[in-house]
Nucleic acid binder design. Structure first.
Length: 267
DNA sequence: AGAATTACCTGAGCGC
DNA sequence: TGCGCTCAGGTAATTC
């Protein structure tokens, strides 16, 4: 389940490997993802060079000159970089073949991903225009979070998972950040003090950066997927001892999402 | 406007 | 062995 750190690690690796390379061919096998993959990609991309790769939230943006290839990995998607030809497996929906023989393969069993072609300013595209500040940027801090949360009764965890509030914070890192900030996930967002908002903004950045660091450190040769459960203090550990105090962790559902916290350490 | 709910999709795990 | 159910969850769309 790619979250922001996994997407960022993928971005860094692909940036190293693909910038300067040109598309030679695009193979579309399954086009029905969350949005239909435009068939024109097969005509638009060949001959274009990857000038750079950016990220906005969990979206990857391949700068192709006068247009952008947008990729979202959804829940189960990943991009695999191969050399030469390789028979596609189940759920290998798209291949991007480069002029140096490299093959970038989009794999996504659940088909929640998106592959789209954007012209004009990509940040003005409807999929990206309403996304909140990047959590690793200076625009996301305690002052912003405090101002944004005033008067809102929604649970803190749901607030920070709202992509319009802050980009790219999914269920795993929302749980982890709230544990680290010692804030209960079901607190009404508007009850947070400025100090708590500041702490929360800091730890959100920390959990994401820690995970990115871990991913950078153990990049495997072919895969560009990353997922580091050894870093998780609470996610997936409901009913097990709290790493802080040893009490058993509570697991509840918030907005339909699995939510794990320590009733002793978080308030 | 904010909050809650639903839809999209497949594989894994479970009870029977 | 297999059927039906629930769960996993990012995000857009829809409804309240």
């Amino acid at each position: 389940m790619p979250e922001l750190p996994e997407v960022e690690v993928t971005r860094r690796r692909l940036e190293r490997e693909l910038v300067g390379k040109s598309f030679k061919q695009v193979v579309l096998r399954v086009r029905q993802l969350r949005l239909p993959v435009p068939a024109e990609l097969a005509k638009i991309l060949p001959g274009r060079t990857v000038r750079g790769i950016d990220r906005r939230g969990k979206y990857l943006l391949f700068d192709c000159g006068s247009g952008w290839l947008l990729v979202h990995l959804g829940m189960t998607g990943f991009l695999r970089l191969l050399r030469g030809t390789s028979p596609p497996g189940k759920h290998d929906h798209l291949d991007f073949i480069f002029d140096d023989g490299r093959l970038l393969r989009f794999h996504d069993p659940r088909k929640f991903g998106i592959v789209a072609w954007l012209t004009g300013d990509p940040l003005q595209h409807p999929l990206l225009a309403e996304i909140g500040p990047e959590p690793l940027s200076g625009a996301f801090d305690g002052t912003y979070l405090f101002a944004t949360s005033r008067g809102r009764r929604v649970a803190v965890k749901q607030l920070i998972m709202n992509s319009g509030v802050v980009a790219g914070v999914g269920n795993i890192y929302a749980n982890e950040a709230l544990f680290r900030a010692r804030i209960r996930p079901d607190r009404a967002a508007g009850t947070m003090t400025l100090q708590e908002c500041t702490e929360l903004a800091v730890v959100i950045r920390e959990v994401l950066e820690d995970s990115i660091g871990e991913g950078d450190a153990c990049l495997v040769a072919e895969e560009t997927v990353a997922y580091y459960p050894q870093l998780f203090k609470v996610y997936g550990r409901g009913g097990k001892p709290c790493p802080g105090c040893g009490e058993l962790l509570d697991e509840i559902r918030l907005g339909g999402r699995s939510t794990v916290y320590c009733r002793t350490c978080q308030e």
